[in-house]
Design a protein around this nucleic acid. Structure first.
Lengths: 353, 353
DNA sequence: CTGAAAGCGCTTACAG
DNA sequence: CTGAAAGCGCTTACAG
């Protein structure tokens, strides 16, 4: 009634007029394009598939016909004979964890830039759910990146035997992975606490199945030993704000003057619980985390943390994957991702014992 | 060397022994299953496709064979004859905006619960990029949800003509959408500010193409007029922390005693800039936002905001979509999603003029 | 450079 | 209830 549209007459959108010339009335296929261009369907396939395998003028005619018909290659049909779907899978533990945002963004960008589609699945921190999600996604992808997976090494190796797999924050023999340089960041963090006079610190571990939690713990153990600092591990805990809150009591019972949480979410939980108990951070308790997620800078005091390059991790992981599926000639650096200690307000001089 | 595995002998994993019985050496197909079960491939298809169309004993035999061969239906092959991919698309403006996390999670859960795969694409706040992303994703999905799209209504209507489309935070004639009850939340927020004595407030708008920014502004205009409160719109602005920071100067120039930002991210930016200028929130300036994202509660003072039900929005959107593609019998409520004013520390009595 | 044919792994009328 | 056949929209040797 009001405004243009609805008419569908002379100036109808391309889509509408294009549809008329179609065999089935549905979207155009290479047969429709072939008809319009006056060539064999196989020639259309070649012209649109890889460039330069068809004479320039034929290709031009075909492209014109394709444009006119608003032709779009059917990815399912293409996948059948080739076995390649042009789709990559990304499975993350908890899509709600700010830590994964960076990974997802990096992965999505790298994938779409290469003309690949990204399918995403969430494991919800459960090995069961993760296995199911992978099962569902596997047949439709050319490869997948597993970020902070909770799967067993055996299962991962088995998956990697079926399709290209790249790991983020997890190492398994024979499976490529993108890993941060944990040691450097941890060493800096422990040095920082040492300088502040902390003699006993606690590590609030993540979930049992978290490889990265163990990795961080191992690095902390080394660094603390070297400096003669007492260190204890408390956990396992859920890698969430609530997990941090729940660990608070045991943390205080340990009499540690500084807490290092498996990730920023847990560190934030500890700070909230401290505030609820009237315990000053960093006056009475220093708190540090890992990752530097959105929010770590907002909380007061702002959180001291070991920053990870999450977007880069996502990018590199799909870069690797693309190389493995033969879709990419990029040179792939396989060094560890640098890690940075970001000192903010949540760490301070050790409370006098 | 160390530990089990590598042998591939008698106790080899299912996958390995299964692969032997396969025609091509690759993954099993229905033909392999048919051979093993001694039936026609079409019977395998029926048995595994829809239940109860094959005799119980045949079905049992087929399932056993399928399990033995570790058979997984090839989704591409299935999609070709049926035209259905069992995949849904989700396109979001900025995957890095905490506001989308909830949507993604809700969508992913609803989709996977229905046995659907979720493909995700990011438009990066650009209509161009969004169009490209949609183009790339469209042929492979049964339908898509567009969250906070920047596309024109015409383009959206056209898309909706090709495949099922459900909108989140956007209304277009004839296209189903999941929308929050903006008016209620806004009314409560304005009442709250009125009670605190604010006589002039500013709205920091989002991007030009944001339907929701206009919607919120319209509701604010109504509510402010009714209460005789002066209101001005400042913008457009990027819907980010930086966007909020950049709007700060114009905000202060307006002499408004309270700022309502298009979203929480912008509100946080305003608060950061206020802090940088030594302006006390809420003593000298009240600030409020929309959505209640992760982080709004962490910042100090905590942010007063109009909470949206993001996870629910994601769930409902794919619920709708599933119904449209005929994959779901759920009854679909189409009421507006309730909105809640969450009063926290960032709003207080109006600074005396 | 281009055509004609076979095949990718399923589904679905059509018979029986 | 089950088989045999055709077809979904592409790609890719194989000829010419």
């Amino acid at each position: 009634m009001s405004g243009p549209g609805r008419q569908g007459g002379a100036d109808a959108p391309e889509g509408a007029s294009a549809r008329r010339r179609t065999r089935s009335g549905g979207p155009a296929t290479i047969y429709d394009v072939a008809d319009l261009a006056g060539v064999n369907p196989s020639t259309v396939s070649r012209a649109l598939g890889k460039p330069g395998r068809v004479s320039a003028k034929t290709e031009a005619r075909i492209r014109a016909a394709a444009a006119e018909l608003d032709f779009r290659m059917n990815p399912m049909a293409r996948a059948l004979p080739t076995g390649r779907t042009n789709t990559l899978g990304l499975v993350v533990a908890d899509i709600t964890n700010p830590m994964v945002f960076g990974v997802v963004r990096g992965a999505e960008q790298a994938a779409s830039q290469a003309g690949f589609t990204l399918v995403i699945a969430e494991s919800q921190e459960s090995g069961e759910a993760e296995a199911t999600a992978i099962e569902r996604i596997l047949p439709g992808v050319d490869g997948m990146v597993l970020a902070t997976t909770r799967l067993s090494s055996e299962r991962i190796a088995q998956l990697a035997g079926q399709k290209p797999v790249v790991l983020i924050n997890r190492a398994v023999d024979g499976v490529p992975s993108v890993l941060p340089d944990v040691d450097t960041g941890v060493r800096d963090l422990v040095a920082h606490l040492d300088e502040l006079g902390h003699r006993t610190v606690a590590f609030l571990a993540g979930p049992t199945a978290s490889w990265m939690s163990e990795r961080r713990w191992a690095a902390l153990l080394d660094a603390a030993e070297q400096r003669g600092i007492a260190i204890v591990e408390i956990g396992p805990n859920a890698p969430t704000i609530d997990g941090g809150r729940e660990a608070y009591r045991r943390l205080r019972a340990s009499h540690a003057t500084a807490a290092i949480a498996y990730n920023d979410l847990m560190a934030i939980g500890v700070m909230q619980e401290a505030a609820a108990h009237g315990v000053d951070v960093p006056g009475e308790l220093s708190v540090a985390g890992f990752d530097d997620i959105f929010g770590s800078e907002l909380i007061v005091p702002a959180l001291t943390t070991v920053r990870a390059q999450l977007v880069l991790a996502g990018e590199r992981a799909v870069g690797q994957l693309l190389a493995m599926v033969g879709a990419n000639g990029h040179d792939l650096p396989d060094d560890l991702l640098a890690t940075t200690l970001v000192v903010r307000g949540s760490t301070g001089p050790a409370a006098s014992a």
